[in-house]
């Protein structure tokens, strides 16, 4: 396969823990098969900072701040197929556990009133992205084409979806590969 015909893939972690990316790397020696079939665009694997036109975008993590939303919209604009990777991208996951608490109270607790935080202040550097009032999954902001559930999804599940997409097939996960935990 020549370089032009390679499938171009971008990946990112928004409000995630990089566990889904670690699980992605757990495809182990299949990575050698993968790099023959794909080129990586923006991804923690390449350290490219902006996303170009891609066939597939894999997004780990939900949306907890304004920068997450910005990156998600860039991915949606540039990726033909967008895949929500893992529990946090699909339902907000662990970061969304704060959703029943007022944001101001959370910031005060973390930076001012918790033990050892005497004299602390809530960060307000203009370079810091503003937190969202609630953490949201990806599909509440943009259209998502496919979902790979799991915390994290297994390497086999990620491999199944990627190879299906690369081959131009509708991705189907066997029932044993569908888990939410």
């Amino acid at each position: 396969m020549d370089a032009k015909a390679k499938v171009r893939i971008a990946t990112t972690s928004l409000a995630g823990c990089f566990g889904c990316h670690m699980s992605f790397l757990d495809i182990d020696e299949r990575l050698f098969d993968l790099v023959r079939l794909v080129d990586f665009d923006r991804s923690p694997l390449t350290d490219i900072k902006t996303v170009g036109d891609c066939d597939v975008g894999l997004i780990e993590g939900g949306l907890c701040n304004a920068e997450n939303v910005h990156v998600l919209r860039e991915f949606r604009a540039h990726c033909r197929i967008l895949v929500a990777l893992g529990a946090c991208a699909i339902n907000g996951g662990l970061p969304a556990q704060r959703n029943h608490l007022p944001l101001a109270g959370v910031l005060q607790e973390v930076y001012q009133t918790s033990p050892g935080m005497a004299g602390g202040m809530i960060p307000n550097d203009p370079e810091l992205p503003l937190p969202l009032d609630k953490v949201h999954p990806l599909h509440e902001v943009v259209h998502v084409d496919y979902f790979i559930p799991g915390c994290p999804p297994s390497a086999d599940a990620i491999w199944q979806v990627l190879t299906d997409l690369i081959a131009g097939r509708e991705p189907v996960l066997a029932q044993r590969l569908i888990h939410f935990d």
Binding site: A84, P137, H139, V144, I148, P149, L173, Q175, I178, F180
Partner: peptide, 8 residues
């Protein structure tokens, strides 16, 4: 799982 619910 049985009904293959991939997202909410």
């Amino acid at each position: 799982y049985e009904l293959q619910m991939m997202s909410p």
